[in-house]
Simulated assay, not measured.
Amino acid sequence: MTNLLVRLERASVRFDKLQVVDDVSLDVHRGDIVTIIGPNGAGKTTLIKTVLGLQPLTSGSIHKTPGLQIGYVPQHLQLQTTLPLSVRRFLSLTGASTKECQAALHQTGIPQVFRQSIHHLSGGEMQRLLLARALVRKPDLLVLDEPAQGVDINGQAALYDLIRSFRDQLHCGVIMISHDLHLVMAATDRVICLNQHVCCSGYPEDISHDPAFVETFGRPVAESLAVYQHHHNHHHDLHGDVVDERHSSQHQDACDHHVHS
């Protein structure tokens, strides 16, 4: 129990007559990466809002370890383009020091944007900035709602690698929502398939063969998920470009990816 960060027990959320989340139980411990997948309208964002304390439960219970620090990366961040806002100012709104803000940008691989306008960032840079903003809180739990949205396929893989590295460095837990099934299967420890209720859950390599998964996502999707060993001697940056080729002989990763065949 000492490593338990969050426990949901029979959690339900209803809006008037609409059942959005129904009887969901979930434990997240330090070191866990739990990915919630499901169709649009399945209640995924509502569920994590209960963890964040933004959405009360209609029934059931939630337990959080005392003093739990949560870092949150939202699905969307709408900013008026007429509002002058630098990356430096945006991060300082967390109350973190300049040194802490710069360190977080270094951790996420975008130290060069510190003095730039937030409106001039690419999709990959923006997602990493939001991740840096979550990291300055030194979180026990990272909550990520579609963290790779707006990032190309190679940039997504790099971002998921980064999330795993932060899990290892901080020994934190991670709850992540994603539709990127082909990459998430390699990026997570546990998958929960949600469609108001928990349809199925388990290890990534098992979940795609579960009948409930096939019923929710369709047989063609489930059958097209295949595991392969991707041996590469290069890195991709947040734009998906190949980098560090000079050191390729010193870097060879073997990482499982699930892709569409």
Rank of each mutant, 00 (worst) to 15 (best):
K138Y: 04
P56Q: 09
I33N: 04
L47G: 06
Q75K: 09
Q80C: 08
P84M: 03
Q19T: 11
P139V: 07
E205A: 10
R164I: 10
R164D: 01
L93Q: 14
A104V: 07
V20I: 15
Y203E: 10
D152K: 14
I110Q: 08
I70R: 05
H182F: 10
A222N: 09
G240I: 01
Q78Y: 13
C101R: 06
G38L: 05
S86A: 08
K49A: 02
T94S: 13
G53S: 05
R88G: 01
T82A: 10
G240A: 00
K138H: 13
K17N: 12
G240D: 01
T216Y: 05
P139S: 03
V243G: 09
L129S: 10
H247V: 03
D32I: 04
H258V: 10
S59G: 03
Q156N: 11
T35H: 06
L57H: 12
L57V: 00
A158K: 15
L4W: 01
S12I: 02
D27R: 10
G150A: 14
N3L: 02
H236L: 00
S12N: 02
A222P: 03
H258D: 01
R30N: 00
H260Y: 14
I110P: 01
A134C: 12
L170K: 11
L121Q: 05
I153Y: 14
L144P: 07
G173W: 00
A132F: 03
T65M: 09
T65D: 00
E245V: 11
R14V: 12
I37P: 00
A148R: 11
S208Q: 13
Q112Y: 12
A134D: 05
V51K: 07
H239K: 09
R167C: 10
P111E: 10
L93E: 12
